[in-house]
Design a protein around this nucleic acid. Structure first.
Lengths: 227, 227
DNA sequence: AAATATTTGTCCGTATGTATC
DNA sequence: TGATACATACGGACAAATATT
């Protein structure tokens, strides 16, 4: 199954710039190479390069000044929104912590709606996903399952804004393999608790399951990163 | 007080494209004019125009295909994230509703932290802002005050992700002048209730004030839009 | 303080590839 | 099969802003 629509050049250059910023651990205020240099190293025309650079600039990640160069912006909440939505988050313990905190508040805050709106069919689907989770080999697969699982949970809540935000915080977590610290058994068990509580129409149990789902990996991840 | 740094052309074109999409109420699947047409109507070179278009394309708002044209993407949660932080939200009752719902869950979810972390000095600042709110003439001023007010509230929570999200949902609200439906007196009163509850160290009162702050304008706005 | 080099900003022209009729 | 419409990509040129000497 290959990609039938090959990426456009400016799209590729955009990704390469992104990787450059992340891999070189650029800090706010740091300069990127000049346009001329980058056209050489990337082997593209100046036009295409600029289409990618201007994207970052308009979004608020970079600033370019004639006679000076291209600079990574300072880190404010506007910068952060851009980074979050663009999956451009730096390796920052605090951000992972904060992102998880937000996700937890949202998931707990919407728990009642999830609990009330989910159907029996959907609960069955949850169990099917859990069965598949047992046979997983790669991390990538796990994330796909996990995403499916949560998508079903929030489907009937019908809040696109919530979906968008959860997805964004998700990406932050993914970047740090938050759940990897859990063993395969624990991961499956966590999701089983959630699904079972919903099946039993046990709201308190659902809240507990949510709490368990978060708190555990959260605590351990922070400890691990602080080492 | 004039703008000392005149906007770059591609930045202006980007804004004009944004306005075009909003003002013409483009729906997913709708086509924009061709590059050539737009260079004429906007009076800019093809390069500059493309730098703006490619921003929208890379972010996931537009798709351009040779031989076809430039098309507004379909509306999914990825599209929404981009729209949210680009302030490119359509005039959609559901979105305003959903955005407010998320903001309320977040503000209530973080209420305990706000309550515990705010200092006496900050509470005094809140009252100063409320005093200024009384003398307001324009909506723009009100939004600035309101933003200041909430920034102080959440300052000590020190969660940049939360700040970024609240700011994004804020923009959605702003686009629809959510609070305009409240009279000047009610707006001031709402903020007074919040500040007073904090001053009195009355947590339940704070929750009530939050609830009042949201529920009222929320209800009325929805009614108004449904007409 | 002035001249020069550096770097981005903006424009133009041209050739190519792709979809539509 | 062509003809047309459209975006993709390249290269060159000069202007404007800033830094350097």
């Amino acid at each position: 199954m290959k990609n039938l629509a090959p990426k456009k050049l400016y799209r590729k250059v955009y990704d390469e710039l992104k990787d450059y910023i992340i891999d070189n651990h650029l800090k706010p205020g740091d300069k990127l190479p000049t346009e001329m240099e980058m056209t050489k190293t990337l082997g593209v025309s100046r036009n295409v390069l600029r289409e990618a650079i201007k994207t970052f600039e308009i979004i608020g990640v970079l600033t370019s000044k004639p006679g000076v160069g291209i600079i990574l912006n300072k880190f404010d909440s506007n910068f952060l929104s851009s980074c979050m939505f663009l999956n451009l988050i730096e390796d920052d313990v605090n951000l992972v912590e904060q992102s998880l905190e937000v996700r937890k508040v949202l998931e707990v805050g919407f728990a009642r709606k999830v609990f009330n709106s989910i159907t029996d069919d959907q609960i069955n689907s949850l169990f099917e996903i859990i069965d598949d989770m047992d046979k997983i080999v790669s991390e990538k697969e796990y994330y796909e399952m996990d995403e499916k699982f949560h998508t079903i949970l929030y489907k009937n809540v019908s809040n696109l804004v919530l979906a968008a935000i959860i997805e964004s915080t998700w990406e932050v977590d993914k970047g740090y393999n938050i759940d990897i610290i859990d063993s395969q058994e624990i991961r499956v068990k966590k999701h089983q608790m959630i699904a079972q509580a919903l099946k039993d129409h046990d709201y308190i149990g659902y809240l507990d399951a949510l709490d368990y789902h978060f708190y555990y990996s959260y605590k351990k991840k922070i400890e691990q990163l602080n080492k």
